[in-house]
Every structure is written in C-alpha cells, then in structure tokens.
Design a protein around this nucleic acid. Structure first.
Lengths: 157, 157
DNA sequence: GCTGAAATTCTGGAGTG
DNA sequence: CACTCCAGAATTTCAGC
C-alpha cells in the first residue's frame, strides 16, 4: 500500500477495535500530536481505508429478535449483477453483504423482528434477482461471539 | 425490552450507522440535551445494548489481502464447546464468529496477509476443536458491499 | 508534524418539573 | 427520576511555522 506507513496501520488497527477513541488518546498511543493524528485519520477516510464507524449493537434491544444468513447461489457469476447487489446492500434489514468464492457466492446477514419478516425478505431477494437466483439457503443466528473485532462477551443475546 | 424507550432505540439505530457522531449532534437528532444523551448512552453500554465501537477498515490498507469465511461442522451441538469458541473469538485474525442453525453451525470471518496464513489458521482450528470438528469449508471473500450497516461503496477492495 | 489559541464538545453537579 | 442548565475541563480544529 503506497503512502501508508506503520503509524497509519497502527491507527487503523486501534480504530477497528475502539472506534470512539479520542484523537488525543489515539495520539498518545501512536506517539503523535492530536492534530497530526487528525490529519492522518482524515487522509485515511479520504483514501477509503476507513469506510465508516459503527457501534456494535445487541439487536434484541431494537426488538430484532431474528438474525439470519442468506446464502445465495446465482446463475451468473460476473459483475453484471453488481447493481442488484448494491440495491440489496441498501436495504435497511441488511447488516452485511459479501461476494465470496464457492457455490453459494453471495452471503447476506440481516436482522428482523420476527420470522414473517424473514420470509418476506427471502421473497424480496427472489424478486430482485429474478431468474439469476438459483437457490437461497437461510440459517438463523443463534449466538454472536464476536462482531467486527468487538467481543460480544457471553455470546448470549 | 424493559426500560428501553423509543428514544433509546433511535440512539442505537443512529450509533449503528454513525458510531463516531458527537453527543451534541446525537442530542439534536433525538431531541435531547447532550447530557441526557450521554446518560442514555452510558445506560445502554452498561446494559450491554452497545457492545463497543468499531471503524470499518478496508483490510488491504493493513496488508490483509486475504479474507475468508470458515464454516465448521461440529460433532457436538451444545454449549460444551463454548469455551473453545470463546478462545477462537479471541484470536487476532478473527473478525466475527457466529453460531447458527444448519449443518455448518459455526461461521468465522477472518483476515490474513496471504494464503499460507489461511492454511495455518485452518490447522489451528483443527487443533483447537480436536475430534469435535467434523469438517471445515473455507471460502474466500471477493467483494464487501456492506459491513455492519456501513456501505462499502464500490464493493472493491 | 508541531505549536498555540479559538471553537466545540464533554462532563458533573445543582436545580427544575 | 429523567431532563435541563451551567460552568469548568477536555477535546477538536485550524492557523502559522
């Protein structure tokens, strides 16, 4: 990675686990003044190294009692479906969306209030992908032990 | 959820997408003074509604060019393996770890510098779970479109 | 990348309904 | 009891070096 030094990487590694750390404390950790850290963080945001910041929330407190993975097997395996994927990514229920190797190329993680919503969402996926969608496998999340480098302690939700 | 009102849920929904928002701005959005928001956020952290805060980082900037899902089929399906799962969750390479329904009960997402590390990690998993581990399926992440409610724009990394 | 000063935010206590 | 207000502390921010 050009233009990125070890201090930038330190900053990224810290922010990944402590997204709300102050610039002052971050400066102390990496050995820079608050102003310099700010410049670096702004650079990293501009470069796209930092996509955003997120709190790790227990979905139960938002009455989202059902979380599920949707594994999609698509007929097409190229970038022609990217526009559809971006549309799916924008949906409010969708927490994460990945393209990966293997048969079930698309993995979606989403949160719902109840199982009816899961069914409705699966239907929405079928409509959005149309005949490109060969198969959908749904699995329900039972425990979350770690999410985005943040430990979820007991794993109970 | 007892003791949680609509304003708390608003706060959680906003923090999920904007983890680094100031308490002042958060207060404006939900119609409360900064001090009140602070009290509520502290309450939500204490209750475990907020597990932590995380920046969404493009792994390439940390020279983590290989990201993978590990889907584990375990011989045992109860909570006796929870201690092992917690040990796996603590590993530095592990970004997320879930227990879910279906045959491949455990899903791990992890980041690596190269494919050798992937192989080494798979070996480590086998050692940790021992004879409880029936099968490991590894898939490589090609694109990340959304991560923890944060859009990753182009999906390119 | 640092310094220093100004603007903003944070924070804890006292006061209000 | 949760909220607001307010003042002091800390942080952020921006200028100039």
């Amino acid at each position: 990675m050009p233009g990125i030094d070890e201090k930038d990487r330190e900053i990224l590694r810290i922010l990944r686990k402590e997204g709300r750390i102050t610039l002052t404390e971050l400066g102390k950790r990496v050995g820079l003044s608050p102003a310099s850290v700010k410049n670096r963080v702004e650079k990293l945001e501009k470069l796209g190294a930092i996509k955003g910041y997120s709190a790790i929330i227990d979905p139960a407190f938002l009455d989202e009692y059902v979380q599920a993975f949707f594994e999609l097997k698509l007929a097409i395996d190229d970038h022609t479906i990217d526009p559809i994927l971006r549309r799916v990514a924008k949906l409010d229920e969708v927490q994460s969306l990945y393209r990966r190797s293997g048969e079930r190329q698309i993995l979606v993680r989403a949160s719902f209030h109840d199982t009816d919503e899961v069914k409705a969402f699966a239907g929405r996926l079928k409509r959005l992908f149309g005949k490109n969608l060969e198969r959908v496998e749904v699995t329900l999340i039972i425990d979350t032990f770690k999410e985005n480098w943040v430990s979820c302690e007991t794993g109970k939700r």
